[in-house]
Every structure is written in structure tokens, then in C-alpha cells.
């Protein structure tokens, strides 16, 4: 059972990292335009706009 000593903190740490990433994406407004995001990924205007 010694394996728990590093497995448990690792599991909890990964979960916490996921939660923080979610909160960050929420704060930066990535859920404001769900339909637009689905479509934007297909357009290649980012290539065209580069000088």
C-alpha cells in the first residue's frame, strides 16, 4: 500500500490542475460563443492574416 503515498497526491493534483484549467478557460471568455468556436476552427483565416 506504500504506492498510495505518491499515487493519491498525483491523482488529486491532476484533478486540481484540470479544475484550474477549466476556471481559466471560463475567465478568458472561451464559453461566450460556443457556436462560433465550432466554426472558427475550420476557417484558415489565421493563415491569411499573417503578414
Amino acid at each position: 500500500m506504500n504506492v498510495l503515498i505518491y499515487l493519491l497526491p498525483m491523482a488529486l493534483g491532476l484533478g486540481l490542475a484540470g479544475l484550474l484549467a477549466f476556471l481559466w478557460s471560463l475567465r478568458t471568455g472561451q464559453y461566450d460563443d460556443m457556436e462560433g468556436a465550432a466554426i472558427r476552427v475550420l476557417s484558415d483565416d489565421d493563415l491569411r492574416r499573417q503578414p
Binding site: A11, L12, G15, L16, L26
Partner: peptide
Amino acid sequence: LRCLGVTGFAAMNIML
């Protein structure tokens, strides 16, 4: 959405 995120991640970890 923040509440949803918090409970979602909590539920996953507790389920583990």
C-alpha cells in the same frame, strides 16, 4: 458554469 466545473471535478475525484 463555475459551480458545474467545481462539482464535476470533485465528483470525478471522489469516484476514483
